[in-house]
Amino acid sequence: MVNPTRGILYPARLPEFHRLPAPSAAAELVAWFWVPEWDIEPGRSSRQEIVAYPALNLVVDAEAVTLSGATTRMSHRDLRGTGWAVGALLRPAAVAALVDDPTALVDGERPLDASAADVGELHGSVVAAMGSGDGHRDRAVVTFARWLEERVGRIGDPARQANALMDVLMGEEAALTAEEAAARLAVSVRTLQRMAHRHVGLSPAAMIRRRRLQEAAVRMREQSDVDLASIAAELGYADHAHLTRDFQTVLGIAPRVYRAESNR
C-alpha cells in the first residue's frame, strides 16, 4: 500500500486531512480522494508544501471546480481562514473526458466552466455534502465519484493500458527505468512515451524521478537512522550526489536540511 503521506513534505503541519478510497465503481478513474479541512486563526496562515504525484487532480471547493495539471516542481498553498476542498487524484483513464491535451496544463490549472450544467451539478452537490454534518466527507466522495463515472462513461482497453502505465511507473515495486516499464507493458519505449504525454502530460522519465523524490522524502522523515547514501542506492540513484542534486533542483532544499526540518 502506498504510504499515505507520500508527496506531502511536512505531514505534521497539515490541517485536518483525509485520504479516502474511491468507490469500487470509480476505481479505474480515481486513485483516491483527498479532503483537507482547516480553521486557521485570524491573521495567521498555514503553508502546505507538496511534491505532487505526476497526475491530474480535479478539485472542488466552496468557490469553484478546478482541473490541475501534473507538476514539475514543488508546489505550495497558503491556507487562511476556514475552508475545505475535495480533490480527486485522477487515474489516466479519466483524463480524456476532462482535457484534450494534458501537456497544456503542466504546472497550471484551469476552472471548469461553471455555467455547464454538469459542472454546476457537481459543485452544488459536493458543497451540499460538505455542509451536511457527520459523514459529510463520505457523502461528498460518493457524489463526486458518481459524477465522474457519468462524465467518463465506458472504459476501453486503451484507457486501461494507460492505467497500467501509471501502476508500473508509480505503484509498489515500480519500474526503475522507462525501458523496464515498457518491457513490463509489452510496448515500445516510444509508445510508452506517447501514452504518458497523452494521459498525464509528462514523460515516463519525469514520472520516475517524481516517484523517487517522493519516496526519498518519506524515508528521510521516517528512517532517521538510515544514511542518505543507502537511500539513494535503494531508489536507483547513481550515488548520493545524484539524489542531492535532484532533491535540490525540485525542492530547493538539501536532503540533510530537509531531514532536520521534517523531524522537528
Rank of each mutant, 00 (worst) to 15 (best):
M207R: 03
P54E: 04
T82C: 08
H123G: 02
A181M: 01
G131S: 13
W32T: 14
R151E: 04
E234Q: 14
R184P: 03
L90D: 13
T5E: 15
T71A: 10
E222K: 07
R221I: 08
G120K: 04
D167F: 03
P54T: 01
D227L: 06
L14V: 10
V51W: 11
I155S: 09
E172C: 05
P15L: 12
V152I: 13
Q48D: 09
P204N: 08
A12W: 01
L89D: 11
E180C: 03
S24I: 10
A88E: 11
L20Q: 10
A27F: 13
V99W: 05
F33G: 00
P11Q: 14
A140W: 04
D61N: 15
V51C: 11
R264H: 12
L235E: 04
L29R: 09
V59P: 00
T143W: 03
V257C: 08
E179Y: 03
E234Y: 06
V189G: 07
R219Q: 14
V141S: 11
L9E: 02
A260T: 10
L98R: 00
A12P: 06
G135W: 06
D61Q: 07
G131Q: 10
R19I: 13
G108M: 01
T72A: 04
D157I: 07
S115R: 11
G87P: 03
L122S: 01
L58Q: 03
L29K: 00
E121C: 07
G81F: 01
E28M: 09
I231V: 14
Y258Q: 04
G120Q: 00
A174R: 00
V60C: 06
L251M: 03
L148M: 04
V51P: 02
G201W: 06
G133T: 01
L148T: 02
N57D: 14
A164I: 07
H123Q: 06
S132G: 14
E63P: 00
A260R: 10
L165E: 12
T244E: 14
V126W: 10
A216D: 01
F33Y: 13
L169E: 10
S75E: 14
V35E: 10
L89M: 11
R151P: 01
A181R: 00
S24A: 11
V152M: 10
R154A: 15
E41P: 08
R146V: 05
M74N: 02
S230R: 08
R221Y: 08
A94F: 10
H199S: 13
Y258D: 00
L58G: 07
R19L: 09
P42D: 02
A64G: 09
A88V: 05
M195E: 03
T103R: 12
A260G: 05
R194P: 01
A162S: 14
Q223E: 15
A181F: 01
E215P: 04
L20G: 09
P92F: 02
V106E: 00
D113P: 05
A117H: 07
A97H: 02
A254F: 07
F247R: 12
D246C: 15
L58E: 00
A129N: 12
R137G: 05
G83W: 08
G81M: 08
D100H: 06
A27T: 13
V218K: 01
S230W: 04
P158F: 03
H123R: 04
L98N: 01
A70L: 04
H18R: 11
A238C: 09
L228S: 08
N3A: 12
R110A: 14
D39C: 09
S46L: 13
V119E: 00
L176D: 14
G69R: 02
E234T: 10
A129R: 07
A94P: 09
A55H: 09
